[in-house]
């Protein structure tokens, strides 16, 4: 069975742009529009957030987008129906990101089944314990050809990083610093040392750097040390404006992906 995420990394291993947005934000029916516009604008991967009342690892921008999306009536069930509608028009790899509780309530097997049906390639469930994945869920995700992506932080031990590298088959999500989402990547010495340390581990999986990637310069910095990067909070700020949503998305992606170095 084909997995678009796995395929992508086979073909391309640099300057990959993964863009996060919250499903049902800024409006309930925005999901499909944002998704299609991102693909057309040149994003390589999308990560769609399933909104949650208590997003522990997220900073204020993404929290707020979760609150708005829930108020708009967003749910996992609704997201699956939105993704089913646009399935034929979207070709880029889709990752769903969300906290474990809503997935458990939906039913984990039913969730995997539905995700596979609507064309989801990968999952990020940040509060799913690694050992439970190994002991309980791995065969299930495998059965539905869903690649599970795990986070690595500056505090993660090498032993654990190697274990994560062995457990996944698409990419490793490198959290840029000890922070929730939305704080800026500074590129200070400590951070660069961390990126280099990970580079030198020669992991089998590519890495995408996330948390604090917000613009062309932070994207380019991340791409020096990893195969690509993930932009979340900064993109949420772009789509907060309901007017000229599509144009704003195109402008933002073009600006981030431009090859020229940022002029001083």
């Amino acid at each position: 069975m084909e997995n678009r995420l796995v395929n992508l990394f086979r073909e391309k291993r640099e300057n990959l742009l993964n863009v996060y947005f919250t499903a049902g934000f800024p409006e309930l029916e925005s999901t499909g529009v944002v998704l299609k516009t991102l693909e057309a604008a040149g994003a390589d991967i999308v990560e769609i957030g399933m909104p949650y009342s208590d997003p522990l690892a997220d900073g204020p921008t993404i929290q707020q987008s979760n609150t708005v999306a829930l108020r708009n009536g967003m749910s996992i069930k609704k997201l699956f129906s939105q993704l089913a509608e646009v399935k034929q028009q979207v070709n880029l790899p889709i990752i769903l990101m969300g906290y474990l509780n809503p997935v458990l309530q939906f039913g984990i097997e039913k969730f995997c089944q539905e995700a596979a049906r609507v064309g989801v390639d990968g999952l990020i469930l940040p509060d799913m314990p690694l050992h439970e994945y190994e002991e309980e869920y791995e065969p299930l995700f495998r059965k539905y050809n869903l690649s599970v992506i795990f986070l690595v932080t500056p505090q993660t031990s090498e032993e654990r990083i190697r274990k994560i590298d062995a457990l996944t088959n698409s990419f490793i999500y490198l959290v840029s610093s000890a922070s929730t989402t939305g704080n800026k990547v500074g590129g200070d010495a400590k951070q660069l040392q961390y990126f280099q340390r990970i580079q030198q581990l020669n992991l089998k999986n590519p890495k995408l750097i996330g948390f604090g990637i917000s613009d062309r310069s932070s994207f380019q910095l991340a791409c020096k040390y990893a195969e690509g990067a993930i932009i979340g909070s900064a993109f949420i700020k772009v789509i907060q404006q309901k007017e000229s949503l599509e144009q704003n998305i195109r402008d933002f992606i073009q600006e981030v992906k431009a090859q020229e170095p940022v002029s001083a």
């Binding site: 949650y52 522990l56 749910s75 996992i76 509780n101 458990l104 309530q105």
Partner: peptide, 21 residues
């Protein structure tokens, strides 16, 4: 409450059908 995850623990919690607390 029903079975779910809150603040890092699997336990009984008050939640909607969609798993929102």
């Amino acid at each position: 409450g029903t079975l779910g995850v809150i603040h890092g623990s699997k336990t009984l919690l008050m939640q909607t059908e969609d798993g929102q607390i």
